[in-house]
């Protein structure tokens, strides 16, 4: 009724005009400041004394084009490593985190193993885990265990990152307010059901940003497997550089990694916003 007949007062019309003008001014400031910073940065870099030499060895278009197919082929290995490792890491991380938050006396050895696992694998550099597994496991000459470097390095990445993710998930579990657990118990949910239906969903939503951070980090760390000679993007780029004395392929490889991580970052931003919208009713 009144919503139909209402029309803004003169003061409100004026206020809207002022807000609009302020917004426009804000946009102009944002654009010009950004442009200025970019221009200054470009000028600083291109006017440095070593710039011509750097441009030749790092920004050679022909070398970029020539190395592209091999790097793209190598990068497919990175993508495969990452796509297979990610779900496995998530599963291990959640299992270890949930194990650490159990209280049953029967599970004490399992809990101890979970603590030992996170302590050890978070302590050892990922590169070292990769090298140890890739060189050590084949040396054992076990029957039935793969000697494929791809799979061994994949396991190394999963073990190393599983420990990190477990700690992130555990922090999320501990951040859920005790009153939530109390009200789940009041509904007679079992400990397992409480964890599965009440605690974990809230915990995982809350730790989504740091989890993504770890996954972005993992995407980059798939390049560590080049240390034992797995043919991936960095390996292909270095290979080309060593033969042609030009480092442009390194930048090409870097571009591949960036192109993969940025969409993932936007995706999590979107997930986070959607969660907020749903829970707070916009």
């Amino acid at each position: 009724m009144s919503g139909v007949t209402w029309s803004p007062s003169e003061r409100e019309v004026e206020r809207r005009r002022v807000r609009r003008r302020d917004r426009t001014r804000g946009a102009v400031i944002a654009t010009s400041v950004t442009l200025l910073v970019v221009v200054v940065l470009v000028w600083l870099v291109t006017s440095s004394p070593g710039w011509p030499r750097v441009r030749e060895t790092f920004l050679s278009w022909p070398d970029a084009k020539a190395s592209f197919p091999e790097i793209a082929k190598g990068f497919w290995t990175n993508v495969k490593l990452f796509l297979i490792a990610e779900p496995l890491i998530l599963v291990i991380g959640i299992l270890v985190a949930v194990t650490r938050s159990t209280v049953s006396p029967w599970l004490t050895p399992v809990r101890a193993a979970a603590v030992l696992y996170t302590d050890l694998l978070r302590g050892v550099p990922t590169l070292l885990v990769v090298v140890l597994l890739a060189l050590g496991v084949p040396a054992l000459r076990l029957t039935g265990v793969t000697t494929s470097l791809f799979w061994l390095t994949l396991v190394a990445l999963v073990l190393s990152y599983g420990a990190y993710v477990a700690e992130v998930v555990r922090a999320g579990i501990e951040s859920v307010h005790p009153s939530q657990i109390a009200s789940a118990q009041a509904l007679a949910l079992s400990r397992h059901q409480t964890m599965r239906h009440v605690v974990l969903p809230q915990a995982l939503r809350r730790v989504a940003p740091p989890l993504l951070n770890d996954f972005v980090s993992l995407q980059k760390d798939t390049a560590l497997v080049s240390a034992v000679g797995v043919f991936e993007a960095l390996f292909a780029a270095q290979d080309y550089g060593n033969y042609n004395f030009n480092y442009t392929p390194l930048l090409v490889a870097a571009a591949f990694f960036v192109a993969l991580t940025i969409p993932l970052a936007r995706f999590t931003d979107w997930l986070g916003r959607r969660a907020v919208r749903r829970e707070r009713g916009r």
């Binding site: 007062s9 003061r11 409100e12 206020r15 002022v18």
Partner: peptide, 17 residues
């Protein structure tokens, strides 16, 4: 607010500035 005026000590505070 979507319309109207709020004053504190006679000074309009609903002004965007």
């Amino acid at each position: 607010i979507d319309d109207g005026v709020i004053e504190l000590d006679g000074r309009e505070v609903s002004d965007p500035h």
